[in-house]
Write a protein that binds this DNA or RNA. Sequence first.
DNA 1: CTTGGACATCTTG
DNA 2: TCAAGATGT
Length: 663
Amino acid sequence: MNLTRLNERVICLIDMDCFYVQVEEIEQPEFRGKPCGVSQYNPYKGGGLIAVNYEARSFGVKRGMRGEEAKKLCPDFNIFYVREKRGKADLSKYREASLKIFEIILKHCDKVEKASIDEAYLDLTDLVMERFQNKSLTNVNFVDSFVYGSFSIDDSNNAEKNLKAWLDINQDLTHECSDVFLIIGACIVQEIRQDIKNTLGYHCSAGIAQNKTLAKLCAGLNKPNKQTILPANSVEELLQKIPINKIKNLGGKLGSILHEQLGLNTVGDLARQNLNDLVKYFGEKTGNWLNQISHGIDQEPVSSRSTAKSIGCSKNFRGKLVLNNRVKVEHWVRQLCEELEERLESDRKNNNRDPTLLVLHITNEAGTFSKSTSISPGKYTAHHFVTQVLDALNGYNKSKTKDDWYPAIYTLGISAAKFVEKGKNMPANSIEKFFNSKPIDKSSEIQPCTSNNIDADIEIVTEENSNDNSFSNENNLEIESKEVSSENSIKNSSNKMDIRCLLLKQKEKATKEDESDMDADNFEEEPIILIEEKNDKKEKKSSEKINSYFMKNSKEEPITDSYDDIDYVLCDKCNKKILSWEMPEHEDFHFAQMISREQSRENINSNNNVQNNAKKRIAENTPTKEDKSSKKTQSKNSKKLKTELSETLKSGTNSINNYFKKN
DNA sequence: CTTGGACATCTTG
DNA sequence: TCAAGATGT
């Protein structure tokens, strides 16, 4: 037995290149090799692009662009439209394609974690060790592989030479070292990718490294249709210059706190921070995680879970579409519940499980809230959901008149969760429920059946096993991993002192201002996170937005008999008054028309600019958080601190410097 | 001290 | 941006 096996893994991320586009291209091969994109909603604007193939990217077309914008950059740009149902995207075609791909992957490897509709993590350790120990090493014959790092002495810019140089160093594949394991892993990955390509026609990219975070990171280094190996010895070099937000889980708020408020640019900068400071700052868990990840350490296992923990749908209602009366609210509750029922039904078939929890989520001007109720056994129909949801929703309606709804709803979401095996959903509060409704834990699906499960009779075990090949309804879109720019200036100055000083200052300040109920020891343990008030931007623009909202309305919709104005929207396609909550369906109608025209090869590219106006971003009142200040669970002290600090920080351009200046 | 309910918030494509 | 989920408290 070799030591290496005990603490090293070979992990891979496989990521389909512009997945949705590939699905369409395979369906309609005549578009292969041409610049294409898949777009969603707002068909008359050319839609918002959710996937763009590489031919189109070379013209500068990007995800998120409008179809028409893309056409300007690339006149031959082809747009595929996602099917819509109830005013929302219907991704079933892509889910089915995804399933086929995963079936192939699973033929090669059983430790597969579905990370999204087009991404999978594989733990190849066992397979690699098997080949290593059997010495069943196929010839290393990489066709589209890269290695990260500089190994070629003479010409380090030549990727091919570089790879060859690295392979030469690790010529002896019987030599037990992590590079060899990665090479064997990369062979396996190449086989899998080739199988996918040969069987289904999809090309994909992959990263091979020692953990999930690194695999994901290096998968994005060379695309499309390429795979990248990250040797352990190159990790530091890579992280040194990689921007923090490229790391999985640091692409959002936490990442921007590190960047904007602490002035850290690269993972290397993060690695130079003092662990204690990170812990003080972000709490035990996050602080330690940041420290580990900054050194390329990530122990997260590849789980075999292949179904979602919750299934839900939601919709935003912007501008005049806000749900400000009961009719609209009930209409949309029904739509969402129907969709949910539909999706749960197929989930029930595929995954043999029932949800036990129904969750309502809303956003209005007072903030965002959620409320959950339990689902009674057997009551999985839209009808039941509607009743429950409306019941819960009423608690948020302060309107004094029976037809109106106040505060108007901006976002409505309904989801189902807490799945148990089919038929095991027991009436609430019954003791049987406690013993029988074992939540379905997909992470254990590979485990052999053991007898210590209270209710693991043979039948149930069989049912569980039958889940192995099913995949969840995930809606992630195609991954666009941007080229990692290496030109980031590496910040030289260590930031250790910054954090420490900041902490001291905070402490001082807090002690002064809130002496009575602040005790220093407790304070020490409380993580101090620089919360940039999430409403930053929103608050700024809200009043402006309201103005522009009214201006826009008066300009572009001067018509309509005034009394029912609120409920009607003027369709700028056909100039008819349409009930605002029926616009999506109405738009579908125009969309269908347009598509059929397009198919009959009429040129419709240039004729509907005017139509865009009505759909232009319309102002939306911003939720204020005031109402939430009474939350009982929040620590007064830390909240106060955070707010103070964030306000201080907000007010300056360079937050930390500014903080010190002010103090 | 552990677990679970009920929300709130974050991350991602 | 929006929608879907997962994670944190």
